[in-house]
Design a protein around this nucleic acid. Sequence first.
RNA 1: GCCCACAUAGCUCAGCGGUAGAGCACGUUCUUGGUAAGAACGAGGUCACCAGUUCAAGUCUGGUUGUGGGCUCCA
Length: 588
Amino acid sequence: MSHTSLIENEYQGENQDLIKMRHSAAHIMAESVLSLFPEAKLGIGPPIENGFYYDFDIQQSITPEDLISIETKMREIMESHSPFERAEISRTEALEKFSDQPYKLEIIESILDEKLSTYSHHGFTDLCQGPHVESTEKIGHFKLTRVAGAYWKSDENNPQLQRIYGVLFASSADLDEHLKRLEEAEKFDHRRIGRELDLFFFDPISPASPFFLPKGTTVYNLMTDFIRESYNHYGYEEVISPQIFSTELWKQSGHYENYATNMYFTNVDEREFGIKPMNCPGHCVIYKAQLHSYRNLPLRYADFGRLHRYERSGVTHGLTRVRSFSQDDAHIYCSPEQIEQEIMGLLEMMGTTYDAFGLSRPRFTLSLRPEKRVGSDEIWDKAENALRSALISSGEQFEEIENEGAFYGPKIDLFTRDALGRDWQLSTFQLDFNMPERFGLEYIGEDGNAHRPVMIHRAILGSLERFLGILIENNAGAFPVWLSPIQATIIPIADRHNGYADDLAKKLKSEGLRVNVDNRSERMNAKIREGQLQKIPYMLIVGDNEQKNNSVSTRLRSNENLGEQSLEEFLNYCAPEIAPPVNLLTSQ
RNA sequence: GCCCACAUAGCUCAGCGGUAGAGCACGUUCUUGGUAAGAACGAGGUCACCAGUUCAAGUCUGGUUGUGGGCUCCA
C-alpha cells in the first residue's frame, strides 16, 4: 500500500489502532491472494470505514469460494506471528524491487520523495507508509465480504481491477455487532418498507422510475404541501415551466455540450427537443420575459416540475437514484451583495424543514473554486466569503473542500445517511455566475444601468423521491404523525360495532384526520397486529363500552395503551400532532 | 457503461436433469373475539425473455432485460 495519507486524514476521527489493524489485514490479504494467484498484480489496499480492501489485477474472476480460501490463508499467516517491519529504500531500489508490479511502479513514479518506505511481514513486502501493527496475529477479527470491480485510480479509462472488501474490528463481539447491524439495516431498507406499507413500487416497464401508490402519493403530496407553505413564509413564488424544450435552449444553457448523455431527446416537426433534466434554463426564460428592477430582487422562482435524467444502468438505486423525479427546486436571482443574506435564509429554512420532517442534522460541505471556472476572482472571493460567513453565523459545523466547486460557482451541499451508512446529498445551495451570463440576464440598478444578477440554485429536500427514501430509512416507515398516510385506524371488536366505527370515522375525517376502518371479520388482535405493522400512529379500538359511552380506546404504535377516552379527549390529544408543523415556519 | 451476484405464485423463499412446492397475502364459509396472527376449504405460476445442449431443462450453456452490491458518473 502506498499513499495512505489521504485515507488516514479522512478517518482521523477513528481509532488509530483500528486503522493500523485494518491496514495490516489488507497486506496479509495481498500476500494470501498472491500465494493463490501468483500472477496477480497489486493495486492499492487501504483501511476504510469498518474494514479494508485491496485491488488486484487477475485474469480470472475471483469467486465467493476463492474468498473462503483467501480468508483461510490469511488466518494461517496470522498464526505465523510474523512481525511487520519497516524499511526505508531509495527510489531506485523501489523501482527495482517492484519491477514486476506495474501499478506499484506507477505509484512510485508519482511520489516525489527520494526516500520511500516498505513494510514486510512473513516474507511479503509492500510499498507503504504505514503504520502497521507489530505482528500479524494482532490484526483483530475480520471477515471478507465481497468482491467488486474498481477502476485503477478510479478512472474508467484505466483497467478495471478486482477489489476484495473485508470488515474488521478489534473484538469478535464488535465484528458480530457490525454484521448484525448490516442484517438489521435490511429492515430499514426503504424499498422493502415501500412495498410493505403500499407506498410505491418499481416495474421493469419503466426502469428506475417509481410508481407511487395512493398511500405513497399522500405522503409525497404532504411533503410538497409543507414546502409550499414554507414558500409563503420565505418569499418564494411558484412557477410552472414546460417539460420539453427545443435543443436551442440546451445549447444556450450549456447542457447540450455537458449533460446531453444524461438527457432524453425526442424529434417532432423535424425539430429536436430535450426533456428537461433541470429547471434552471426554463427559469431563465421566465426571468427574461420581464424587465426587472433592483427593487424586486431577490426574485425566487420555485418549481416542482418533473425531471428526467438518463442515469446509467449501474447507478440507479431504489428511490434514492431514479430516472424520473421532481425537486423542491427554486432559483434565486439576486445581486452579489445579497448572496450572504440569501444563504442565511436558506440555512434557516433548511433547519426548520429538517425539524419538521424529524431528520437529524446533515453533514455540511462547502465546495470552493475549481481550477477550471468562469467568473472573475473578485466575484469568487465575494461568493466564497458570503457562503462561509453564512455558514459560520448559522453555527453549523462544515467542511471546506478545495477544487470541489462547480465551474460556475461555489456551493454548499448537505449529506444525510441511509440505513447502510451511505451518504446521500439532499439539500444543495449552488451559486451560479455562468447561466446569467449565457442568458444575458439583467436587472436595472439604482444607478439606472443594467447589472448582471447572480443565480442561486437551491433545493432543501432535493429530489422528493430521494428525500422520501432517506426519510423512510431514518424512521423505518413510522412517519411523523402529520406525514402518516393513515393517521388513525378504527378497529371494531365485532361486526356489530362497524356502524359506530363508520360514524366515528366520519367525525374524525371532518376534524382533518386521515382515518380508515378495519371492518374485516378478523379478530381484534389480528387487526391490531396489522395496524402495528402498518405503523399507524393511532389504533382506535371500539367495542360495546365505547359504543355505549361514545368513546374510543386508543393504542399507540409505541405499544402504549391510553385506555378509554371520550372522542373529545382523543381529539385534544392528537390535535398537536396531526397537522403539518407550520408553526415552525412562523419565526420569520 | 464496467465487475460480481441474483431473477420460481402478489410478497418471502424451497426445489438444482425426470409431470411445479411452502409460509404469508388473497377469496369463500364458519367464528364475533378487549390490545401483535381463530379455523377449514379454495383460487393463483409459459419457473424474467430469446436461443442452444439433452430422449427429457426452473434445473446445464450462451445472449437479452431487470434487480442487488461495488466502481465510475452526478456540468
